[in-house]
Computed example of a mutant assay.
Amino acid sequence: MTATVLNPSPIAKAYLDKVRKDVTALVEKGRRRPRILGLLGQEDGPAATYARYAQRGCEAAGIELDVEHVQAHEVEARIAAANIDPEVDGIFLYYPLMDRANDRWLRELVDPRKDVEGMHSFWARLLYENHRHVDAGHELRAILPCTPLAILKLLQHAGLPTHRVGDEPPLAGITACVINRSELVGRPLAAMLANDGARVHSLDVDGAITFEPAIGRRTFDVTDSGIDRAGALASADIVISAVPSRDFELIRGDEIREGAICVDVAEFTNFDQSVLERASVFVPRVGPLTVAMAARNLPRLLRLRSERA
Rank of each mutant, 00 (worst) to 15 (best):
A82Y: 03
A80K: 08
V19E: 04
I174P: 01
E59Y: 11
G253P: 05
L140C: 09
T290E: 04
R78K: 13
G137Q: 13
L39F: 12
I36D: 05
I11N: 11
V200E: 00
Y94H: 10
V75S: 03
D135P: 04
N83S: 12
I79F: 06
L289I: 07
E117T: 04
P170N: 07
K13F: 02
N180G: 12
D85R: 09
R308Y: 02
H120M: 11
R296Y: 15
V283T: 01
S225K: 09
D264M: 01
L140G: 05
K153Y: 10
T210A: 13
H201C: 13
V283E: 00
V5H: 04
I215T: 01
I238S: 00
T223S: 14
N130I: 01
V243K: 01
E64M: 02
L289D: 04
D66P: 07
L149H: 08
T162D: 12
I261H: 08
A242I: 05
I215D: 05
P161K: 02
D237H: 10
I174S: 07
E76I: 06
F271W: 02
V286H: 03
L97R: 01
E59G: 07
A214H: 10
A234C: 01
P244R: 06
A136D: 14
Y94F: 15
T24W: 00
W123F: 11
V75G: 02
S306L: 09
K153M: 10
I209F: 00
G287L: 07
R141L: 11
C58S: 04
V70D: 14
N7A: 06
A158N: 04
D135Y: 09
L149M: 09
E43R: 15
V75Q: 04
R20Q: 13
L160N: 03
L126Y: 14
A82R: 00
D89T: 07
L155Q: 08
R187N: 15
R257M: 11
R187E: 14
A54Y: 06
T219P: 01
F282A: 03
E212I: 06
A14K: 15
L6V: 06
P299F: 11
L16N: 07
R20H: 12
A61T: 06
L203P: 08
L301M: 11
N7V: 02
D85F: 10
R132E: 10
L276R: 03
G173P: 07
A82E: 09
A234G: 03
T24V: 08
V134F: 13
H163A: 13
D196L: 14
A232F: 00
R132M: 09
Y128Q: 00
Q273Y: 06
S121W: 02
I209R: 04
Y128K: 02
R218S: 03
R199D: 05
I238C: 02
L298I: 09
L127A: 00
L93G: 05
L171C: 08
W123M: 13
R104E: 03
F122A: 08
L109Y: 02
P170M: 07
L26H: 02
A194D: 03
V178F: 00
F220Q: 12
E117H: 10
P244S: 04
E68L: 12
F122Q: 01
L126I: 08
P213V: 00
D17H: 10
P161Y: 03
V70E: 14
